[in-house]
């Protein structure tokens, strides 16, 4: 079954066109990588899918597990199973990380007609995830991303993803600025969630992350649309040739 179907998606921000006709289908069980130069619209696609205010969709359709994704509020998209790991996660001083995760998880459960999670169950689940991924347990006690290093923020995004267990996760340059250990941790967080019911869209600059998260399909983004798609070997080709040859190759 296709989890996500994007058809001719166009969007603007502050009058500037950032998506110029994106077509993309992601079936369950697959990992799709999106690569491309700075400013090509990769992050805009992630933001539009999550429903960030400020973007205006000017045409196109997005179906998410059979629903019209664009008709949903950001929190409804989350409840439906869409997760965005932010490139620059915002800090929320005063809100405890564990308290926040419990609230988020319970909001998901409530929307699905489930009871609230028992706090002890959540805590033991968090403990287990953090232990498996080798995160500092203190992360759970601190305020959401407040005073976190770049690496810690990305750890926190992976922790949230692991607790919320989305059907479809978008990782927006989650690898940027990470050392090799942190990179492995992010990859491990994704790989342990991989299953036929789930899919991932991994937005990245570098081929490096794809050594650890093996993609099924690689798309190249340029000027607001996908200009080339291929297998994982496409990522290696980009790594050695850069993006220039794609521009020249285009009509």
């Amino acid at each position: 079954m296709n989890l996500l179907e994007i058809e001719d998606l166009k969007a603007t921000i502050a009058g500037h066109e950032v998506l110029r006709g994106v077509n993309l289908v992601v079936p369950g069980g697959e990992v799709h990588a999106v690569m491309g130069p700075n400013g090509s619209g990769k992050s805009s696609l992630a933001h539009v899918l999550a429903g960030k205010p400020g973007y205006e969709v000017t045409s196109g359709k997005v179906r998410f597990m059979g629903q019209d994704l664009l008709a949903l509020a950001p929190e409804e998209r989350a409840w439906a199973g869409l997760f965005l790991a932010f490139q620059y996660p915002v800090a929320i001083p005063g809100v405890n990380n564990t308290y926040f995760l419990r609230s988020a998880l319970n909001a998901h459960r409530k929307a699905r007609g489930q009871d609230e999670i028992d706090s002890r169950d959540l805590l033991s689940k968090m403990r287990q995830i953090m232990k498996e991924l080798g995160m500092d347990p203190k992360l759970a006690q601190r305020h959401v991303n407040d005073g976190f290093s770049g690496g810690e923020k990305k750890h926190n995004e992976v922790l949230q993803m692991s607790v919320l267990e989305p059907r479809f996760a978008i990782l927006d340059e989650t690898d940027s600025g990470l050392d090799i250990d942190a990179l492995r941790m992010v990859a491990e967080g994704v790989n342990r969630l991989r299953s036929p019911e789930r899919a991932f869209l991994v937005v990245t600059h570098y081929q490096r992350l794809l050594d650890y998260i093996i993609p099924d399909v690689v798309h190249v983004f340029a000027e607001g649309r996908i200009v080339k798609s291929g297998g994982k070997e496409l990522a290696l080709e980009l790594e050695s040739k850069g993006y220039g040859w794609l521009k020249e190759a285009r009509p």
Partner: peptide, 18 residues
Amino acid sequence: LDEEQLFFLASRGIDGDA
């Protein structure tokens, strides 16, 4: 209240009033 924070919370499923 900060709009970025509100969007972040919404993207994690925590709706407006909450």
